[in-house]
Design a protein around this nucleic acid. Sequence first.
DNA 1: GTGAAAGCGCTAACAA
DNA 2: TTGTTAGCGCTTTCAC
Lengths: 326, 326
Amino acid sequence: MQDIARRLNISRSTVSLVLSGKSDGRVSEAVKKKVLETAKEMNYHLNELARSLRVGSSNLISVIVTDISNEFFSQMTFHIQEAAKKAGYLVLTINSNENDDEFEQMARILISKQVDGIIAVPTPDGTDALKMIIDQNVPLVTVDRYCEGVEADYVGVDNYEASKKAIEELLSQGFKNICMMRLDLDIPPLNERERGYIDAMKAAGQEKHIAIHRIRFGEEMERDLMEPLKDVLATDAVFFSSHRVFTEAMKVVARVGGVPDRQCVLCFDDVRPYMTGASDIRYIEQPIASIAQKSFDLLLAKMKGDKQTGKYVFPTRSIDRQSLLK
Amino acid sequence: MQDIARRLNISRSTVSLVLSGKSDGRVSEAVKKKVLETAKEMNYHLNELARSLRVGSSNLISVIVTDISNEFFSQMTFHIQEAAKKAGYLVLTINSNENDDEFEQMARILISKQVDGIIAVPTPDGTDALKMIIDQNVPLVTVDRYCEGVEADYVGVDNYEASKKAIEELLSQGFKNICMMRLDLDIPPLNERERGYIDAMKAAGQEKHIAIHRIRFGEEMERDLMEPLKDVLATDAVFFSSHRVFTEAMKVVARVGGVPDRQCVLCFDDVRPYMTGASDIRYIEQPIASIAQKSFDLLLAKMKGDKQTGKYVFPTRSIDRQSLLK
DNA sequence: GTGAAAGCGCTAACAA
DNA sequence: TTGTTAGCGCTTTCAC
């Protein structure tokens, strides 16, 4: 900036005025044009770091998810990024790997980096880290997992109702012996989905068939999936608590020849591309785009000074092959 | 920093020394301890923005992909992020949406943000933007798509050989009438995969069966997939050029009842969880983790001053149900 | 319409 | 071992 001011024999402030678009009627058109030209000519790029330091906002937000390679989160992140882009923000994506310490450590770094806001999928015991973020006055929106006692917005779905309803549907269609496979993580959405499953089974007098297989996240996943496989394949239907556990299970199943035709598979999250075989595959759809958009909108409002926090629960849809045909 | 210095009646520089861990033997242990304590007590977080401005490096890198919700890219990004985290870098992820202008515009913003380096999947005509990045002396590594005439590292696989070999295998096993479905994007990997397909078909005297269906990316995807569906389902085998086009095709196929049992499906990229049905599904595996790691390593070297650029081509593997059983 | 000057929070060379 | 000082590149108030 100095350089281009010197070259034109004007002051840095004038250049700054022009380059930051605040020159309406305050700088003569002639000078303005000259400045713009020279800037292009010199291949000048504004130093956002310096601007951020001066004005006190980085135009950076962060999205902390469990794992960006998880399809649900990568789609959510995509939509947040596109919304952020429109509003002039860039996004730092972070993987917590379901680890509280990592989550907290990354949150600290983000605060140091002066991010203007954070959208986070909390880890199982992430309350402290969330509180720290709030303490530092960094706008925060939580998604997917509700965290009791944290003064932040929450965006998600009604996991209990969604799975209860879906299981009831299965039961009413004659599938009695339904088991469930879920990750062994103590997080609200999975617990709620399990509760929905249990309540639906009980209400239908099928408690004897309740069977919940907990799959550890990480290295042990494959083993934990393999072990109950025989029992699982013998049921009428199996309910997968989320996309990730479903795809991992399918990888294992692929080795033993596939899902029996008579078996029904129900999954939380979109598994449409899997509905091509003989067996009945259906799923509970979360409106990811809306969830993402809402999260960003809430964050934006907070960054603009809004102080209120709220819970925003989106409706889900049950999809089976029938509904695909419409 | 000022505050904590005042409170302890010492100077800012001493505090800085301690807090940035450069105090080895230069600051007394007593003072050091005091500083650390007060910092924690005051809930102090270093302002990285100011540090970055001063030292001239932001410890930020960026990964520009087509679309983070694409499974291949989200996995790649995940591994890059984990490598970056270990090296003390945070990553800004950007979607180009296959759009040259968007790519260039985002590259400009990234330069303004003073990112220390960029790992990019170039858009179809992204050469200018890449050159601009290099002009600005921002370390650059290109992945997945090789860009002729750009002085940057490249990391990827031999798309031609991989698909040629896979098609040859199919042919040798009796599948004669093999068609291909690819995205309608003029990018090297897809063109190479097509070339591999064509050459293999010709070499086997099956040119009469060569059929390439080009699917437009975006809104038209579904229509473009639907239209040739009847012809495609009548072939012995179909070769999908990438994960994305495969899953989208499956969504369409799901509505007409699935892939015929006798048909073989070959796909570039991991589709293991789909290998559960009756039909023969196989794929060409790219070593995503290695590609990501190498990309980051190259970027890191560049950021440390390395001036050389090179092409790094990783081997692929053909996977079918057989190989899963080992 | 334009310029001078202060300062955002930090680091690093040098002095004490 | 600790403090002084200059300055990274920008914005913004205030004076001209």
